[in-house]
Design a protein around this nucleic acid. Structure first.
Length: 464
RNA sequence: GGCGGCAUAGCCAAGUGGUAAGGCGACGGUCUGCAAAACCGUUAUUCCCCGGUUCAAAUCCGGGUGCCGCCUCCA
């Protein structure tokens, strides 16, 4: 079935077609590792994971590259201000390298918690400095750069179609921008390819280059690394909506200026998470909620968040509230109970996925990843009149995309000795209609973290 | 100021011309010694407001209001 994706480049849903049949090159802009990722960041990574799983579900082989930005991302005005990594290092009394490493580790842990598939390849900006320098040299040779006191800049006026991805009105932008201008820049949209280390300052992260000691601008890494690792397989490039106007626009400009070829056919962007009644989360504002502080520390498993994001289409701002989290928590538990109930009836080996419902599911998924509708088809399948084994097989098949670990729902497992003893005692008490003892034993078992359910012919006990 | 997006039940939301998906919550029921779980049923005459086009509009057009984002670090 044809997969349709919304392409920011054309502002339309388009039939997806990779450059090479059945193989997809996917590049997703990864984190800047100077702090924890907040759950707004993670929403985008979940969206990208769904995209990847949808591609796989459709039978594509996916080469997925995710970068780690560990240098060059500045805090201040465009290409001015401090380096985020160096600032983070100051804040925590560590080296910039240590900061990068520890937050990269934290990020990967978040991904694991959310069941986000690992990319085929991780790449750190600092591991591809030579490629970035080469790309800048090419741009220099082709006359797209100029040199000012603090670095080498890309002259956006020399690249035709600079705004092909964004919808910026450049003249209006220049008039209305509140930026503290760098007076040496020729155009407001020009951006740094290479920044010089400030005079007399020894940066922790700096490299030699043909232009002097310094470090790469933020945008160049994604261009250099996507070309390095995906070569000509430039199918889909993703990120958050905030990247449309600046980061991705600049990536396209410098890449296409350098190669003369189209840089990525599809551009996809995830919308923000909005705190209910408030503003977006931003690392730089320090108001962010992390997976750890918001979920794990409150005893809410991270997959609840993954499930919660399915309620809203990825291109629409998602309202975040504790109420929404609770709804997702209940919803996921309900779904698992439904699966558990089916599992307890035993899975027939020959059970196959119901084609009618699978077609419905994939159709919705393939309609620009309409997860709210895809999720609705899960409930429709569960409430349908197909037999239990088929239902289970079908829903578990959907979970290849959903990634909710439904196959791990426990029905019966080896229970510890002490629990088993209490269960036996309770069965005896129930047989004797000793309800006081029965209820007391149930409380005891549940206090130990197990759920007790009396069913038709006995008792179901499983770890919560 | 420029540009872009959004506004659907108590809450989260899907739906872009044919008469309102799904989830959560709530209420009622089945089952049960009681719970829990599961299951069944009910829960928006109406889609921010005003006007227009059409046999037909939540969906298209015009105007307004509110919220959000980008233009400055950002997923």
């Amino acid at each position: 079935m044809q997969l349709y994706l919304y392409n920011t480049l054309t502002r339309k849903k388009e039939a997806f077609k990779p450059i090479e049949d059945k193989k997809v090159g996917l590049y997703t802009c990864g984190p800047t590792v100077y702090n924890f990722a907040h759950i707004g960041n993670l929403r985008t990574f979940i969206f990208e994971d769904i995209l990847k799983r949808a591609l796989l579900y459709n039978g594509y082989r996916v080469k997925h590259i995710m970068n780690i930005t560990d240098v060059g991302h500045l805090t201040g005005d465009r290409d001015m201000g401090e380096d985020k990594m160096e600032k983070g290092a100051q804040r925590e009394g560590k080296t910039a390298w240590e900061i990068a490493e520890s937050y990269t580790r934290a990020f990967k842990q978040d991904m694991t918690h959310l069941n986000i598939m690992e990319p085929s390849l991780w790449c750190k900006a600092t591991d591809s400095i030579p490629e970035q320098i080469e790309l800048i040299k090419t741009l220099e040779e082709k006359g797209f750069t100029y040199n000012i006191s603090d670095g080498i800049y890309f002259d956006t006026s020399k690249f035709e179609g600079y705004t092909k991805l964004s919808s910026q009105n450049l003249e209006a932008l220049q008039e209305g921008a509140r930026v503290e201008k760098n007076p040496e820049k020729r155009n407001a949209t020009d951006f740094a390819l290479w920044k010089f280390s400030p005079d007399g300052v020894k940066r922790q992260m700096e490299w030699d280059s043909p232009w002097g000691v310094g470090f790469p601008g933020w945008h160049i890494e994604c261009s250099a690394m996507s070309m390095k690792f995906l070569r000509d397989q430039l199918d889909i490039h993703c990120g958050g909506v905030d990247h449309i106007d600046v980061h991705h626009t600049n990536e396209i400009a410098q890449s296409e200026a350098a190669t003369g070829k189209k840089f990525f056919n599809f551009w996809m962007h995830g919308a923000f998470l909005i705190i209910s009644g408030g503003k977006k989360m931003a690392k730089s504002e320090g108001n962010f909620l992390t997976l750890d502080s918001t979920f794990i520390q409150n005893g809410i498993e991270p997959l609840v968040y993954r499930f919660a994001t399915y309620q809203t289409h990825y291109r629409k701002p998602m309202e975040y509230s504790e109420e929404a989290v609770q709804a997702a928590r209940n919803g996921l538990e309900h779904l698992r109970n439904q699966v558990r109930s089916l599992m307890s009836k035993g899975m027939v080996d020959t059970a196959s996925v119901n084609d009618e419902y699978k077609q419905k599911f994939i159709k919705r998924l393939n309609d620009d990843l309409n997860m709210p509708r895809a999720l609705a088809s899960v409930q429709e399948a569960l409430k349908s009149d197909m037999d239990d084994s088929e239902k289970l097989a079908t829903v578990l098949d959907f979970d290849r995309v959903l990634g909710l670990d439904l196959e791990k729902v426990t029905v019966s497992e080896e229970l510890p000795e002490n629990i088993q003893q209490k269960i036996d005692a309770r069965k005896k008490a129930r047989a004797e209609k000793n309800w006081v003892l029965s209820d007391q034993l149930r409380d005891e078992i549940q206090a130990l973290g197990y759920v007790v359910q009396d069913v038709k012919d006995g008792m179901t006990v499983f770890k919560k």
